[in-house]
Design a protein around this nucleic acid. Structure first.
Length: 425
RNA sequence: GGAGGAAUAGUCUAAUUGGUAAGGCAGCGGUCUUGAAAACCGCCGGGUUAGCGCCCUUGGGGGUUCGAGUCCCCCUUCCUCCGCCA
């Protein structure tokens, strides 16, 4: 959520920044409401001061056994006026809050300006593209032939976009999740958490999925709960409403969760295999950081996400997203894209973002240092990583001519073998 | 699902038949000191204001009242017990 005070003090500057995200924002209504709001506050507070003083007088009169009925009658009227004004004020504040909740975060001033992914900026790459010999099969035809996954039966259970992993495929995915959790909670120093996968509306609003993304999420009406589209939501909200000790910052969490996305409106795009699904598995990284060094923490978070691909020996590149491609709540985002030899292109497998205080203000996550007033933390997160697109790259890069997978060293302890074959072989 | 109890600021803990939130601890700044401790002073939820100040804040929302932490209703969470259950 944008700070109303900031909005009041430099509206033109903020409008220009936010509109770099390729959206139009209108601050006039909100600033008008704010002015009325502050006028109303002045009025009601004056009346309340009157009422408080009158009440004290009444108490004093009654203590002295004097008649206070005239004062009581007069104050009753003041009370009625306060009630009416308070109701007006409350409605106005709610309207202002709804408008504020719908405004995206401003991108960092140094984020490259652009409309779409064409304007994203190359940062660096690691490793080399795996070869794509004639016999190489893409992840879909190879995996279904080898019995690693079964999309038709997944569709039978739930519908298209719900993958079913089978046999060695299920084991491979489990191994990847465990390897990533061990890496992040081990040498990378994150505290591992296992969270609820259904959350309430307050949590969804805290991280910015609500109100704007309601159509993209699964909702259980009966219990008023949402299926999480990413573990970012429960993990970031762990300390919602709290005031944290500055000494504990940065706090670093990692956690696995399935992710549920309706992907409304994206039918027909990247629908093959694992490229875009309604359910996928992901290990997420979240940090709560001090505002002063949140951008240093973003670089470290990015390195931690990259370390997964490095240890797996998979070629990837890092991009800075341009303003138009940066998501609603983010101020700056890096994407990590892993190379798919059979597709012959890069696949997004991680987004690492700094949300600055945008989520912290919504979720009310603050920290206090010394005698200072509580301030909002900066929140960051990144995938570390999503398994679906990782598996695409992995099975293509590690595929041998005989159809087996020659596993990266780091995965062998988890699978108890260096070579994985499907039951079909 | 049923019965009972509880929720006060970072934390702990008070507040008369309803009278306008008192303290302790932790933390931070200052005085003093070679340095530290102790002691003493100040700060330590939010809104509004240039500031003084004023207003709000006792889990959330309503109600009664001149006035609600306190009385009434609804909700949430936690604890105890009963029932059901992997």
């Amino acid at each position: 959520m944008i700070d109303i005070k900031e909005l009041r003090s430099r509206p033109a500057e903020l409008k220009e920044l936010i509109e770099r995200k390729n959206v139009r924002v209108d601050f006039e209504r909100i600033l008008g409401l704010d002015e009325t709001r502050r006028e109303l506050i002045g009025e009601t507070e004056k009346l309340k001061a009157e009422r408080n003083a009158a009440s004290r007088d009444i108490a004093r009169l009654q203590k002295e056994k004097q008649d206070a009925s005239a004062a009581i009658a007069a104050t009753r009227e003041t009370g009625d006026r306060i009630k009416a004004l308070d109701q007006e004020l409350k409605a106005l504040e709610e309207e202002q809050r709804q408008l504020l909740l719908a405004i995206p975060n401003a991108p960092h001033p140094e984020v490259p300006v652009g409309n779409d992914e064409e304007a994203n900026v190359f940062v660096r790459e690691w490793g080399e593209k795996a070869p794509a010999p004639e016999w190489l099969k893409d992840h879909l035809s190879w995996g279904e032939a080898e019995g690693f996954y079964d999309f038709p039966r997944g569709a039978k259970l739930s519908g298209s976009g719900f993958p079913l992993y089978t046999g060695p495929g299920a084991k491979l995915e489990r191994a990847l999740i465990q390897f990533m959790l061990d890496l992040q909670s081990g040498e990378n120093g994150y505290t591992e958490v296992s969270t609820p996968f259904l959350v309430n509306s307050a949590s969804m609003t805290g991280t910015g999925q609500l109100p704007k993304m309601a159509e993209d999420m699964y909702y259980c009406e009966r219990d008023d709960l949402w299926l999480i589209p990413t573990a970012e939501v429960p993990i970031t909200n762990i300390h919602a409403g709290e005031v944290l000790d500055a000494k504990k910052l940065p706090m670093k969490f990692c956690g696995y969760s399935p992710c549920f996305r309706r992907e409304a409106g994206s039918y027909g795009r990247d629908v093959r295999g694992f490229l875009r699904t309604h359910q996928f598995n992901k290990v997420e990284l979240v940090k709560l950081a001090r505002p002063e060094n949140s951008y240093e923490e973003l670089e470290k978070l990015l390195n931690d996400a990259e370390s997964v691909l490095q240890k797996l020996g998979l070629h990837y590149r890092v991009l800075t997203l341009c303003s138009g491609d940066t998501s609603f709540a983010s101020a700056k985002t890096y994407d990590i894209e892993v190379w798919s030899p059979a597709e012959g292109k890069y696949l997004e497998c991680s987004s690492c973002s700094n949300f600055e205080d945008f989520q912290a203000r919504r979720a009310n996550i603050r920290f206090k240092e010394g005698s200072g007033k509580p301030r909002f933390v900066h929140t960051l997160n990144g995938s570390g990583l999503a398994t679906s697109r990782l598996i695409v790259a992995l099975v293509e890069a590690c595929q041998q001519e005989d159809g087996s997978l020659l596993l990266p060293e780091v995965l062998r302890p988890y699978l108890g073998t260096e070579r994985l074959r499907g039951p079909a072989a």
